[in-house]
Simulated assay, not measured.
Amino acid sequence: MELLLLIEMAAPFVADLQSRWPLARHTPQRVGEVRIAITNGSTGLSAQQMDALPSLQLVCCYGAGYENVDLPAAHARGIAVTHAPGVNNASVADHAMALMLSSARALPLLDRAVKQGKWLSHRAARPAIHSKRLGIVGMGNIGALIARRAEGFDMEIAYHARHARPDAAYRYVNNLPELARDSDYLILACPGGAATRHMVNKEVLEALGPQGFLINIARGSVVDTAALIEALLQKRIAGAALDVIENEPAIPADATQLDTLILTPHISGRSPEAQQAQHDALLYNIRACLEGRPLRHVLTLN
């Protein structure tokens, strides 16, 4: 039996897998012996790849995302697909708040300026977040955790999602441009995939306006990157902070020239605690598959 690892993973976790089972990285030596593939939402697994692995029984998504796994193809072939929802929710919500604060207060820019001896020339006023209007796109578990944290800053919170959540104590806005127009800060915490691709487009950015900030800890595909870069270059929004970006790790050339754009390398969920919980979820489902026991967090077709 071989595990097929299709994604990058921290070295200690790779070593742990190798100590337990035969492991192939990226390309299996014996395709007929691969029973379990390990991927994530960004890398996914296509129907064609599944067909190249005739003994495949299980696809484990390392983390919550699964948008690029062909679920219908997996179900048609009798291949189970699991993920690990919730293990890094708190870490992602923390990172969203860090990005919002960093963007509002221009922390990377000010850090560089002070280190370059430009203390006095950079002591301009910067926007606060307390008592400001926060729009959250997506009110799932992560969106709800972001809202709870924002309450501590006395922010006025509203949200947009496919449907209103009866248990959410915040104002629901059915129209995304309207939410953007009513927000000083717009945080994206929605799923990726075809349904949300370029949801944040030129219209939404125009609605957010020259005093508004965009924060994305969702998926890079949710934002029309070209429209965002143009809006930043033309100062039609105040700033953006992104943990994810289309075509990552490649970034647009103009991004390096923008002091109003903060980028982090898709690490919002990578706290040590979250990574260990994610790995434990993976180990459980591998063992369960091999021992014929029920799997946890199996994805089904809606």
Rank of each mutant, 00 (worst) to 15 (best):
G117L: 03
P12W: 05
I215T: 11
G143W: 14
C61F: 15
T39I: 09
Y284L: 11
A24I: 11
S19E: 14
G140M: 08
R219L: 04
R20Y: 05
A218T: 05
I286K: 00
E206I: 06
A64T: 09
D243V: 14
S102K: 01
A231D: 15
L208P: 01
A11Q: 15
L4I: 06
D184I: 10
L282S: 06
E206P: 01
H297W: 12
H198Y: 14
A169D: 12
T300A: 12
G138W: 06
L176T: 09
N141F: 14
M199W: 12
S183V: 09
L71E: 02
G143A: 09
H163N: 13
P265A: 07
R287E: 15
L4P: 07
A124K: 10
V31G: 02
R149G: 01
M1F: 12
I251W: 10
V59A: 11
N174F: 07
T260S: 14
D51K: 14
P210W: 10
C61K: 09
W21L: 05
I38W: 03
S55R: 06
R30Y: 02
Y284E: 14
G138P: 09
R181I: 12
V223F: 02
F213R: 02
L99M: 05
N68W: 08
Y170F: 14
R105Y: 12
E33D: 15
A238T: 08
I217Q: 02
V31D: 13
T39F: 04
L301M: 13
G86M: 04
L228R: 00
L205H: 02
Y66Q: 01
I136K: 02
Q29S: 14
C190P: 01
V59Q: 08
R197N: 01
C60T: 05
R25N: 06
G44L: 05
D167I: 10
T196N: 00
T39D: 04
I157Y: 00
L290C: 08
I146P: 00
S131T: 13
Q257V: 14
P127R: 06
P265K: 04
N247M: 13
G140L: 04
D94E: 15
C61G: 07
K118A: 10
S55N: 04
R165W: 08
T225M: 13
N89W: 03
R112W: 06
A150V: 10
Y66V: 14
E8V: 02
S221A: 08
L290W: 09
Y159N: 08
I286M: 09
G143I: 15
Y284H: 14
V244M: 03
C61M: 14
P28C: 07
Q57T: 08
A125W: 07
D182A: 03
S221F: 05
E203T: 11
R236Y: 08
K202V: 12
T300N: 05
A124L: 12
P166Y: 02
A227I: 11
V244G: 01
I157T: 02
G193P: 06
L301K: 05
V114E: 07
T260W: 00
I215K: 00
F153N: 04
S268H: 11
L17M: 01
T260E: 10
G138F: 05
L208F: 01
A52V: 13
S103Y: 10
A241Q: 02
T196S: 08
L71G: 01
R105A: 11
K132I: 13
R287V: 15
Q48A: 13
H163F: 03
M100A: 00
S102N: 12
A250C: 09
A281I: 11
E178L: 13
